[in-house]
């Protein structure tokens, strides 16, 4: 569904991604794990078109999207839950969801999707008129996820959804991710929390200073000595 080949990304002279290659197949949860500064966010930003790569190719559903504008990429079916949530804190919960539905032309179905989001996140429904900046961290994360779902993505990019959340909430968020995946949405999950990420992902790639150094099924990686030492703290 998503295939990335020979991707090189620079910030000025900083070479942030070196020849990145990976694939996400339809229906999977794939996780990209790595330490802070490894290049995870850069990878997602490049897929979403916020950053232009120096070289390489990104294909989505068989079509090259490497040089497609960010707003068109959303229309093609890639949703993005950005790092740090990036909700519109000055707008209400409902307005945030409306922004998520910005590209939708099918009004009636969009209405059903608001209901879908509210049934998934009842707490958002209770706070529908509340200004989003006043929500708790967990609620903001739910809003960021709900907002991304409103575009009906085929592929959902999630950048450290567990960041800054209490363990119980992290569990909840991960079970929501599994739920979304079961509903038919493919998920590319970026995490520093390798334990949790590997527990729900089908496959994983390990990113170190802009290079993919390991890949395999989650089971293989959990069993690997290297990963256990470096990322799972065991």
């Amino acid at each position: 569904m998503l295939s990335i080949k020979g991707l090189n990304v620079y910030y000025g002279t900083i070479h942030a991604l070196h020849d990145i290659e990976f694939e996400v197949n339809e229906g999977e949860i794939v996780t990209l794990i790595g330490a802070n500064g490894a290049g995870k966010t850069t990878t997602l930003h490049t897929i979403s078109g916020l950053i232009q790569p120096k070289s390489g190719e990104i294909k989505f559903m068989g079509k090259p999207i490497t040089h497609v504008a960010a707003n068109k990429i959303v229309e093609m079916g890639i949703g993005h839950v950005p790092e740090g949530r990036r909700i519109f804190a000055n707008m209400t919960v409902m307005e945030n969801l409306e922004m998520g539905a910005y590209i939708r032309k099918d009004k009636a179905q969009a209405r059903d999707d608001y209901e879908m989001v509210f049934s998934r996140f009842p707490r958002l429904k209770e706070r529908i008129k509340q200004v989003a900046g006043t929500l708790s961290g967990g609620e903001q994360q739910m809003l960021a996820i709900g907002r991304a779902l409103m575009s009906r993505p085929k592929l959902l990019l999630m950048d450290e959804p567990s960041m800054g959340l209490a363990p119980l909430l992290v569990k909840e968020i991960f079970s929501i991710i599994q739920d979304i995946n079961r509903g038919g949405t493919t998920v590319l999950l970026v995490e520093q929390n390798a334990n949790m990420a590997l527990s729900i992902a089908n496959r994983a790639y390990v990113l170190e200073t802009g290079k993919i150094v390991l890949s395999g099924s989650s089971k293989e990686l959990v069993a690997s000595e290297e990963i256990r030492k470096a990322y799972l703290g065991k």
Partner: peptide, 10 residues
């Protein structure tokens, strides 16, 4: 409020 986040909304 946030131009990049707005981009990600399409």
């Amino acid at each position: 409020f946030d131009m990049n986040a707005a981009c990600l909304m399409g």
